[in-house]
Amino acid sequence: MNEPASRTIADARPDNWVDRFAPQGWRPFLKLSRADRPIGTWLLLWPCWWSITLAAPAGQGPDLMLVLLFGIGALVMRGAGCTFNDIVDRDIDRQVARTRLRPIPSGQTSARAAVAWLIAQALVGFAILVSFNPLAILLGVASLALIAIYPFAKRFTYWPQAFLGLAFNWGALLGWAAVRGEIGWAPVVLYLGGIAWTLGYDTIYAHQDKDDDALIGVKSTALRLGEATRSWLVLFYGLQTAGAGAAGALAGLAWPFWIGLGLATAQLAWQWARVDIHSSDDCLAKFRSNHLYGALLCAAFLAGKLAA
Protein backbone atom coordinates (compact mmCIF):
# COMPACT_ATOMS: atom_id res chain seq x y z
CA MET A 1 0.00 0.00 0.00
CA ASN A 2 1.42 3.39 -0.97
CA GLU A 3 1.89 6.20 1.51
CA PRO A 4 -0.75 8.95 1.17
CA ALA A 5 0.55 11.89 -0.82
CA SER A 6 0.12 14.10 2.26
CA ARG A 7 2.80 12.05 4.04
CA THR A 8 5.39 12.27 1.25
CA ILE A 9 8.10 14.74 2.32
CA ALA A 10 8.40 17.73 0.01
CA ASP A 11 11.82 17.05 -1.53
CA ALA A 12 11.30 13.29 -1.92
CA ARG A 13 10.25 11.90 -5.28
CA PRO A 14 6.53 11.01 -5.31
CA ASP A 15 7.40 7.46 -6.41
CA ASN A 16 10.20 6.91 -3.87
CA TRP A 17 10.59 3.31 -2.72
CA VAL A 18 9.97 4.01 0.98
CA ASP A 19 6.46 5.36 0.42
CA ARG A 20 5.69 2.66 -2.14
CA PHE A 21 7.13 -0.52 -0.70
CA ALA A 22 8.52 -0.22 2.84
CA PRO A 23 6.48 -1.72 5.71
CA GLN A 24 4.34 0.93 7.39
CA GLY A 25 6.10 0.68 10.74
CA TRP A 26 9.54 1.18 9.20
CA ARG A 27 8.68 4.22 7.12
CA PRO A 28 9.24 6.90 9.80
CA PHE A 29 12.69 5.52 10.61
CA LEU A 30 13.72 5.13 6.99
CA LYS A 31 12.61 8.73 6.42
CA LEU A 32 14.65 9.88 9.41
CA SER A 33 17.61 8.33 7.57
CA ARG A 34 16.54 10.01 4.29
CA ALA A 35 16.19 6.63 2.58
CA ASP A 36 13.40 8.22 0.54
CA ARG A 37 15.94 10.87 -0.59
CA PRO A 38 19.18 9.00 -1.34
CA ILE A 39 21.03 11.90 -2.99
CA GLY A 40 22.65 12.88 0.32
CA THR A 41 24.14 9.41 0.72
CA TRP A 42 25.73 9.70 -2.71
CA LEU A 43 27.11 13.17 -1.93
CA LEU A 44 28.69 11.77 1.24
CA LEU A 45 29.97 8.65 -0.53
CA TRP A 46 31.60 10.15 -3.62
CA PRO A 47 34.53 11.81 -1.76
CA CYS A 48 35.19 8.44 -0.08
CA TRP A 49 35.28 6.60 -3.40
CA TRP A 50 37.32 9.38 -5.02
CA SER A 51 39.89 9.03 -2.27
CA ILE A 52 40.24 5.24 -2.21
CA THR A 53 40.57 5.35 -6.01
CA LEU A 54 43.34 7.95 -5.80
CA ALA A 55 45.12 5.96 -3.09
CA ALA A 56 45.11 2.68 -5.03
CA PRO A 57 48.40 1.44 -6.53
CA ALA A 58 49.22 2.68 -10.04
CA GLY A 59 47.49 0.65 -12.71
CA GLN A 60 44.89 -0.72 -10.29
CA GLY A 61 41.36 0.19 -9.25
CA PRO A 62 40.20 0.56 -5.65
CA ASP A 63 39.89 -2.42 -3.33
CA LEU A 64 36.35 -3.74 -3.82
CA MET A 65 35.93 -4.58 -0.14
CA LEU A 66 36.68 -0.96 0.73
CA VAL A 67 34.22 0.17 -1.94
CA LEU A 68 31.55 -1.95 -0.23
CA LEU A 69 32.47 -0.96 3.33
CA PHE A 70 32.47 2.75 2.52
CA GLY A 71 29.15 2.33 0.72
CA ILE A 72 27.52 0.77 3.77
CA GLY A 73 29.25 3.24 6.07
CA ALA A 74 28.02 6.24 4.07
CA LEU A 75 24.48 4.87 4.14
CA VAL A 76 24.31 4.36 7.90
CA MET A 77 26.33 7.42 8.92
CA ARG A 78 24.38 9.74 6.64
CA GLY A 79 21.27 8.20 8.20
CA ALA A 80 22.61 8.73 11.71
CA GLY A 81 23.58 12.33 10.93
CA CYS A 82 20.17 13.12 9.45
CA THR A 83 18.43 11.48 12.40
CA PHE A 84 20.46 13.63 14.79
CA ASN A 85 19.68 16.69 12.69
CA ASP A 86 15.94 15.97 12.86
CA ILE A 87 16.06 15.49 16.63
CA VAL A 88 17.82 18.83 17.09
CA ASP A 89 15.71 20.69 14.51
CA ARG A 90 12.27 19.28 15.30
CA ASP A 91 10.87 22.63 16.47
CA ILE A 92 12.30 24.50 13.47
CA ASP A 93 11.08 21.81 11.06
CA ARG A 94 7.50 22.42 12.13
CA GLN A 95 7.77 25.99 10.82
CA VAL A 96 9.26 25.23 7.38
CA ALA A 97 7.01 24.06 4.55
CA ARG A 98 9.59 21.65 3.09
CA THR A 99 10.29 19.92 6.42
CA ARG A 100 7.09 19.95 8.43
CA LEU A 101 6.17 16.44 7.23
CA ARG A 102 9.39 14.93 8.56
CA PRO A 103 8.66 12.07 10.98
CA ILE A 104 9.17 13.88 14.30
CA PRO A 105 7.36 17.21 13.67
CA SER A 106 4.51 15.39 11.89
CA GLY A 107 4.06 13.01 14.84
CA GLN A 108 4.91 9.81 12.94
CA THR A 109 7.51 8.94 15.58
CA SER A 110 8.86 10.36 18.83
CA ALA A 111 12.19 11.97 19.63
CA ARG A 112 12.92 9.09 22.01
CA ALA A 113 12.41 6.48 19.30
CA ALA A 114 14.57 8.59 16.98
CA VAL A 115 17.40 8.51 19.52
CA ALA A 116 17.24 4.71 19.63
CA TRP A 117 17.36 4.62 15.83
CA LEU A 118 20.34 7.00 15.87
CA ILE A 119 22.24 4.70 18.22
CA ALA A 120 21.49 1.61 16.12
CA GLN A 121 22.84 3.25 12.95
CA ALA A 122 25.90 4.60 14.75
CA LEU A 123 26.74 1.13 16.05
CA VAL A 124 26.73 -0.27 12.51
CA GLY A 125 29.01 2.55 11.42
CA PHE A 126 31.32 1.91 14.35
CA ALA A 127 31.52 -1.80 13.51
CA ILE A 128 32.73 -0.88 10.02
CA LEU A 129 35.15 1.75 11.30
CA VAL A 130 36.99 -0.60 13.67
CA SER A 131 37.85 -2.87 10.73
CA PHE A 132 40.17 -0.13 9.42
CA ASN A 133 43.72 0.74 10.46
CA PRO A 134 44.41 2.91 13.56
CA LEU A 135 44.77 6.21 11.69
CA ALA A 136 41.50 5.68 9.82
CA ILE A 137 39.76 4.81 13.09
CA LEU A 138 41.09 8.00 14.68
CA LEU A 139 39.93 10.09 11.73
CA GLY A 140 36.51 8.44 11.82
CA VAL A 141 36.06 9.25 15.50
CA ALA A 142 37.21 12.83 14.91
CA SER A 143 34.49 13.31 12.30
CA LEU A 144 31.84 12.95 15.01
CA ALA A 145 32.63 16.46 16.23
CA LEU A 146 31.79 17.90 12.81
CA ILE A 147 28.58 15.87 12.62
CA ALA A 148 27.55 17.15 16.06
CA ILE A 149 28.22 20.81 15.27
CA TYR A 150 26.50 21.03 11.89
CA PRO A 151 22.81 21.10 13.00
CA PHE A 152 23.52 24.08 15.25
CA ALA A 153 25.54 26.09 12.70
CA LYS A 154 22.53 27.75 11.07
CA ARG A 155 21.68 29.27 14.44
CA PHE A 156 24.90 31.31 14.68
CA THR A 157 26.34 31.76 11.16
CA TYR A 158 25.20 32.49 7.62
CA TRP A 159 27.71 29.83 6.49
CA PRO A 160 26.31 26.53 7.82
CA GLN A 161 27.06 25.05 4.40
CA ALA A 162 30.76 25.36 5.24
CA PHE A 163 30.24 23.13 8.28
CA LEU A 164 28.34 20.66 6.11
CA GLY A 165 31.27 20.67 3.70
CA LEU A 166 33.71 19.93 6.50
CA ALA A 167 31.64 16.91 7.55
CA PHE A 168 30.47 15.60 4.17
CA ASN A 169 33.92 15.55 2.57
CA TRP A 170 35.76 13.95 5.49
CA GLY A 171 35.79 10.74 3.49
CA ALA A 172 38.45 12.30 1.23
CA LEU A 173 40.84 12.02 4.19
CA LEU A 174 39.40 8.83 5.65
CA GLY A 175 39.49 6.89 2.39
CA TRP A 176 43.15 7.64 1.74
CA ALA A 177 44.05 6.75 5.32
CA ALA A 178 42.13 3.46 5.10
CA VAL A 179 44.21 2.46 2.06
CA ARG A 180 47.65 3.80 2.94
CA GLY A 181 47.66 4.31 6.71
CA GLU A 182 48.85 7.89 6.30
CA ILE A 183 47.71 11.29 5.03
CA GLY A 184 49.30 13.01 2.01
CA TRP A 185 48.78 16.23 0.12
CA ALA A 186 46.53 14.62 -2.51
CA PRO A 187 43.69 13.85 -0.06
CA VAL A 188 44.13 17.21 1.67
CA VAL A 189 43.59 19.23 -1.49
CA LEU A 190 40.78 16.86 -2.50
CA TYR A 191 39.14 17.57 0.86
CA LEU A 192 39.53 21.34 0.54
CA GLY A 193 38.07 21.28 -2.95
CA GLY A 194 35.17 19.15 -1.72
CA ILE A 195 34.30 21.73 0.92
CA ALA A 196 33.94 24.31 -1.86
CA TRP A 197 31.84 21.84 -3.89
CA THR A 198 29.46 21.43 -0.95
CA LEU A 199 29.25 25.19 -0.52
CA GLY A 200 28.09 25.36 -4.12
CA TYR A 201 25.51 22.59 -4.24
CA ASP A 202 24.10 23.21 -0.76
CA THR A 203 23.73 26.93 -1.41
CA ILE A 204 21.59 25.98 -4.41
CA TYR A 205 19.63 23.61 -2.16
CA ALA A 206 19.18 26.26 0.54
CA HIS A 207 17.44 28.61 -1.89
CA GLN A 208 14.38 26.35 -1.51
CA ASP A 209 13.94 27.44 2.11
CA LYS A 210 15.13 31.05 2.05
CA ASP A 211 11.71 32.63 2.61
CA ASP A 212 10.86 30.41 5.58
CA ASP A 213 14.40 30.74 6.94
CA ALA A 214 14.18 34.53 6.86
CA LEU A 215 10.87 34.46 8.75
CA ILE A 216 12.04 32.18 11.56
CA GLY A 217 15.57 33.57 11.86
CA VAL A 218 17.54 30.61 10.49
CA LYS A 219 20.71 31.52 8.56
CA SER A 220 22.11 30.12 5.30
CA THR A 221 24.41 31.03 2.45
CA ALA A 222 21.31 31.41 0.26
CA LEU A 223 20.24 34.34 2.46
CA ARG A 224 23.78 35.70 2.76
CA LEU A 225 24.62 35.59 -0.94
CA GLY A 226 21.16 36.23 -2.39
CA GLU A 227 21.23 37.44 -5.99
CA ALA A 228 25.04 37.13 -6.02
CA THR A 229 24.78 33.34 -5.72
CA ARG A 230 25.64 32.71 -9.37
CA SER A 231 28.90 34.69 -9.05
CA TRP A 232 29.84 32.78 -5.91
CA LEU A 233 29.16 29.48 -7.68
CA VAL A 234 31.99 30.35 -10.06
CA LEU A 235 34.31 30.59 -7.05
CA PHE A 236 33.00 27.47 -5.28
CA TYR A 237 33.00 25.24 -8.33
CA GLY A 238 36.28 26.71 -9.56
CA LEU A 239 37.93 25.77 -6.25
CA GLN A 240 36.48 22.27 -6.47
CA THR A 241 37.89 21.86 -9.98
CA ALA A 242 41.28 23.14 -8.86
CA GLY A 243 41.28 20.81 -5.85
CA ALA A 244 40.34 17.77 -7.93
CA GLY A 245 42.95 18.64 -10.55
CA ALA A 246 45.67 19.14 -7.97
CA ALA A 247 44.77 15.87 -6.24
CA GLY A 248 44.99 14.01 -9.55
CA ALA A 249 48.35 15.55 -10.37
CA LEU A 250 49.77 14.82 -6.91
CA ALA A 251 48.57 11.22 -7.19
CA GLY A 252 50.35 10.83 -10.53
CA LEU A 253 47.27 10.14 -12.65
CA ALA A 254 47.72 9.65 -16.39
CA TRP A 255 46.24 11.72 -19.22
CA PRO A 256 42.72 10.12 -19.31
CA PHE A 257 42.09 11.80 -15.98
CA TRP A 258 42.27 15.25 -17.52
CA ILE A 259 39.69 14.39 -20.15
CA GLY A 260 37.38 13.05 -17.46
CA LEU A 261 37.96 16.13 -15.30
CA GLY A 262 36.94 18.30 -18.25
CA LEU A 263 33.67 16.38 -18.62
CA ALA A 264 32.96 16.63 -14.89
CA THR A 265 33.72 20.36 -14.91
CA ALA A 266 31.29 20.80 -17.81
CA GLN A 267 28.56 19.42 -15.54
CA LEU A 268 29.35 22.05 -12.90
CA ALA A 269 29.36 24.74 -15.59
CA TRP A 270 25.92 23.57 -16.71
CA GLN A 271 24.62 23.95 -13.15
CA TRP A 272 26.05 27.46 -12.94
CA ALA A 273 24.62 28.53 -16.30
CA ARG A 274 21.15 27.05 -15.89
CA VAL A 275 20.21 27.25 -12.21
CA ASP A 276 17.18 29.38 -11.35
CA ILE A 277 17.53 30.37 -7.71
CA HIS A 278 13.93 31.62 -7.67
CA SER A 279 12.53 28.18 -8.55
CA SER A 280 12.47 25.58 -5.77
CA ASP A 281 11.94 22.78 -8.28
CA ASP A 282 14.93 23.85 -10.36
CA CYS A 283 17.15 24.27 -7.30
CA LEU A 284 16.29 20.74 -6.21
CA ALA A 285 16.98 19.37 -9.70
CA LYS A 286 20.36 21.11 -9.94
CA PHE A 287 21.27 19.95 -6.44
CA ARG A 288 20.44 16.35 -7.33
CA SER A 289 22.53 16.60 -10.51
CA ASN A 290 25.67 16.63 -8.36
CA HIS A 291 25.31 12.86 -8.19
CA LEU A 292 26.26 12.82 -11.88
CA TYR A 293 29.20 15.12 -11.18
CA GLY A 294 30.44 12.79 -8.46
CA ALA A 295 30.21 9.81 -10.80
CA LEU A 296 32.01 11.61 -13.63
CA LEU A 297 34.87 12.66 -11.38
CA CYS A 298 35.18 9.17 -9.91
CA ALA A 299 35.35 7.74 -13.42
CA ALA A 300 38.05 10.30 -14.25
CA PHE A 301 40.11 9.29 -11.22
CA LEU A 302 39.71 5.61 -12.10
CA ALA A 303 40.69 6.09 -15.75
CA GLY A 304 43.75 8.10 -14.75
CA LYS A 305 44.77 5.53 -12.16
CA LEU A 306 44.37 2.53 -14.47
CA ALA A 307 46.45 4.26 -17.16
CA ALA A 308 49.15 5.43 -14.76
Rank of each mutant, 00 (worst) to 15 (best):
L261R: 07
A264Y: 04
L64K: 11
A214Y: 02
D15V: 06
A172R: 09
R102T: 01
L284S: 01
A167T: 13
S289C: 02
D15Q: 13
C283Q: 01
A12I: 00
R98G: 02
L225Q: 07
G194H: 05
S106H: 11
L44G: 04
A299E: 02
A136G: 03
I149Y: 15
A56Q: 05
H207F: 09
G61L: 10
R274C: 05
R180I: 00
F301L: 15
D281G: 08
K219H: 13
L239E: 00
A242K: 00
A251N: 04
A80F: 14
W255D: 07
D281Q: 14
L135R: 13
N85F: 12
F21G: 00
G165N: 08
G238C: 08
I104S: 05
G294K: 03
G165K: 09
L297M: 15
R34A: 04
G61E: 04
G175A: 03
S143L: 12
G181L: 10
F163M: 11
L118G: 05
D282G: 04
A55M: 07
A285S: 11
I9V: 15
L215M: 13
H207G: 09
A116R: 13
P134Q: 12
A145H: 06
D282F: 07
N85D: 15
T198R: 03
A56R: 12
F287R: 01
I195L: 14
R37K: 14
F236S: 02
L68C: 13
L118E: 10
A247C: 12
W176E: 01
R180G: 11
A269N: 05
A142Q: 09
L144P: 00
A300M: 09
L302R: 11
S220A: 11
S51N: 07
C82N: 08
G252F: 04
S6H: 14
Y205C: 02
A300D: 04
A55F: 10
L233F: 09
A114T: 09
A266F: 11
L32H: 01
S131R: 15
G238S: 05
G165H: 10
S279K: 05
Y158E: 06
R155H: 14
A172Q: 07
F163T: 03
I128E: 07
S51L: 10
I119Y: 03
I9K: 00
L66Y: 03
W232K: 08
I9M: 13
K305M: 08
A111M: 06
V124E: 12
C283D: 03
A12Y: 13
P62N: 00
R288M: 04
W232C: 02
L215T: 15
S33F: 13
V234H: 14
L235R: 05
R90F: 09
R274L: 09
